[in-house]
Computed example of a mutant assay.
Amino acid sequence: MKRQPLRLAILEAARILTDAGVASPRADAELIAAHVLGVERGRLPLVPLVDAAVVDAIGQLVTQRAKRIPLQHLIGWAALGGITVDVGPGVFVPRPETELLLEWGLGVLKGREYPVVVDLCTGSGALALAVARARPDAVVYAVDIDRNALAWARHNAEARAAAGDTPIRLYSGDVADGTMFAELDGLVDLVLCNPPYVPEGTHVPPEVAEYDPPPAVFAPESGLAVIRHVVAASARLLRPGGGLAIEHDDTHAQAVPALLRARRVLTEVAGHADLAGRPRFATARRG
């Protein structure tokens, strides 16, 4: 059977996804094609022609994606900080916006040997595992309250350890518990957190509304309820000079920095934009 240009299959896929309202149709089309072919996305230009069966397989996944099933559920993984983690039903899918938060956190650790890092609301474990990959000397703790998220995080942690990365320390716990990690009070170099922060009642895309676990997305008190506990926990956990980075909703540009400044021990409070220029995370240092 005659082979077909991969480029045309990707163009058709992107057209279908555009019509379906997918936010990044071309990127998703290319990632689906790369997944079907078993190659990295950047190597797609090296595959000019493909069999009809490949085109059909791409088309089947594109049909699913057009129904707004998350791309990461279809291909089975999400990327963050140079690693991939497995994701699926029952766990929040890491987003590219979190890359900048991770980058800031790794900057805090420069020049520190054997740093102690805590990832609150770890979900799939992506942030904690990305830190462990970038800093093999770090002691990384990760915690979540949701048993489904912890099952995914445990699976990903075991996979990363099998690949040779430094193991992380994974716990079940509630960030609202003032005794959580009490043995680490004043000893932590970096706290990272991508908590539930979307104000309840906010309209979100179908990929979020129908597939991300609601407790991992939405929070009471205009989206600030969990963030308040994270700020309190961080203020006691951090050592002097330690850093904190919290992702937040783009409506929280003033509110989250204000919560950080309200803690006298926290200094150098700053807000940061995501790749699209929207307010996305706030940082502080322990004075």
Rank of each mutant, 00 (worst) to 15 (best):
M1W: 12
A13E: 06
R15W: 06
R15I: 03
T18N: 09
D19I: 12
A23C: 03
D28G: 07
I32F: 05
A33R: 11
A34Q: 06
A34V: 08
H35R: 10
V39H: 05
R43I: 02
V50E: 05
A52I: 10
V55F: 11
V55T: 15
G59D: 12
R65W: 13
A66R: 01
K67W: 02
R68M: 08
I69P: 06
I69W: 07
I69N: 05
P70N: 03
G76K: 01
G81R: 01
I83G: 03
D86Y: 09
V87Y: 06
P96F: 13
E97F: 06
L101H: 02
L102K: 08
E103A: 14
E103W: 06
W104I: 04
G105P: 10
L106Q: 04
L109I: 15
R112N: 12
E113H: 13
V116S: 07
V118S: 06
D119R: 09
G123Q: 11
G125A: 06
G125E: 09
L127P: 09
L129T: 02
A130W: 13
V131M: 08
R135D: 08
A138V: 12
A142H: 02
V143A: 14
A149V: 00
L150H: 12
A153M: 12
R154T: 09
R154I: 02
E158D: 14
E158N: 14
R160Q: 14
A163H: 08
T166K: 13
P167G: 11
L170I: 02
S172I: 12
D174A: 10
V175W: 07
A176I: 04
T179D: 05
A182V: 13
E183K: 12
L184I: 05
D189T: 10
L190N: 00
L190E: 01
Y197A: 02
Y197M: 03
V198G: 01
V204F: 00
P206E: 00
Y211M: 10
D212K: 04
A216S: 08
E221V: 09
S222C: 07
V230I: 15
V230M: 10
S234Y: 07
L238Q: 02
L238H: 01
R239L: 12
G242C: 00
L244V: 07
A245G: 12
E247G: 06
H248N: 05
D249W: 05
A258F: 00
R261C: 12
E268A: 10
H272N: 08
L275M: 15
A276S: 15
G277L: 02
A282G: 07
A282M: 05
R286P: 03
